[in-house]
């Protein structure tokens, strides 16, 4: 369980994090979204106990990060931004060091290292020094380090940055496999990742929480939600016909691939009506799709809206 209350961090006159409060329970995977410089990493650093908040506080499994730092850190697995480690050490020596610091000994030490190495496919590079590894391997060493002591709470700052698509898929699988009984916070700016691993998403910008919802509900905020897109032979005729439908608010044509999107009036469903219309008019359709909503569009409108407000103020 992670709890933050009114977390603030100021660097000189710059406010990096401005009153962030949230609570994440076991079984939740929280996606932390925001543009670069939004305060994602600073918030994570404060929860991990690396940076002291200017005001407010954070609790990990009930332990206050500032008052009981050792207890909080014991419950926590943390992958810092950029997955730093000791380059001159071999993977085996590095994981051994982390296991020692985490107080793992005997059979359990062996078993935990084997488990983490297996989950992240590090078996082949155990004897190699970390600085000679590729970026993807280094990230996986950082992840192995974070999950080594089977922590209740995991904070992962951009866990899939620098991984190739296959490795991304594996890491997402790893997070999903651990999600059941752990509290996990993942920061990312890859929006597809939110759908793949998170059951809750927080969008922050300029140090403030702008949205806190499930990925599905966030998508529903998009104007593309329930819109219908299609590719047809006769674009002009289809466009005109669609615009006449009572529940259609507007029709747009993508200038690049001539794909048509019909947007419904608020709260209306138009998929059936559009299908009927196309059939009745005899318009040849090569592809027809009901849009769920576009997370990137929601992300842009939420974060840029905040930027404009900030500029006005």
């Amino acid at each position: 369980m992670i709890e933050t209350r009114e977390l603030c961090k100021q660097y000189g006159r710059i406010t990096a994090v401005d009153g962030i409060s949230f609570r994440v329970e076991a079984g939740q995977v929280l996606g932390f979204l925001g543009p670069n410089g939004a305060g994602k990493s600073t918030t994570m650093k404060m929860i991990a106990g690396f940076v002291a908040p200017t005001s407010g506080g954070a609790k990990v499994c009930g332990f206050d990060v500032e008052a009981q730092p050792l207890e909080a850190k014991r419950e926590l697995g943390y992958l810092p931004e950029g997955a730093p480690s000791y380059g001159e050490m071999t993977v085996a020596a590095f994981l051994g060091f982390i296991a020692d610091v985490r107080g793992l000994a005997g059979e359990r030490r062996h078993q935990r290292i084997d488990d983490a190495v297996g989950r992240l496919n590090l078996g082949g590079v155990m004897g190699q020094s970390i600085e000679t590894l590729s970026k993807g391997f280094r990230r996986r060493v950082g992840l192995a380090q974070a999950i080594l002591h089977d922590p209740k709470v995991l904070i992962l700052d951009e866990p899939t940055d620098g991984l190739d698509p296959n490795q991304k898929h594996e890491v997402r699988g790893l997070i999903n496999a651990m999600a059941k009984d752990k509290t996990i916070v993942v920061s990312t700016h890859i929006l597809e990742e939110v759908h793949a691993v998170c059951n809750r998403a927080i969008i922050i910008a300029r140090g403030k929480v702008l949205a806190d919802d499930t990925p599905d509900k966030l998508e529903a905020r998009s104007r593309y939600h329930q819109a219908v897109s299609m590719t047809v032979a006769n674009v002009a005729a289809a466009r005109e016909a669609l615009a006449r439908l009572p529940d259609v608010d507007s029709v747009e044509v993508d200038p690049q691939d001539q794909r048509i999107t019909a947007f419904p009036r608020k709260g209306r469903s138009i998929f059936g009506a559009v299908g009927d219309l196309l059939k009745a008019q005899g318009i040849a359709v090569s592809e027809l799709q009901l849009e769920r909503g576009r997370l990137d569009e929601v992300f842009r409108s939420v974060t840029q809206g905040a930027a404009k407000e900030g500029a006005r103020a």
């Binding site: 106990g49 690396f50 050792l70 810092p80 480690s85």
Partner: peptide, 9 residues
């Protein structure tokens, strides 16, 4: 950042 977020003082 790694060292100081491990459970050591």
């Amino acid at each position: 950042e790694l060292l100081l977020t491990l459970p050591i003082t």
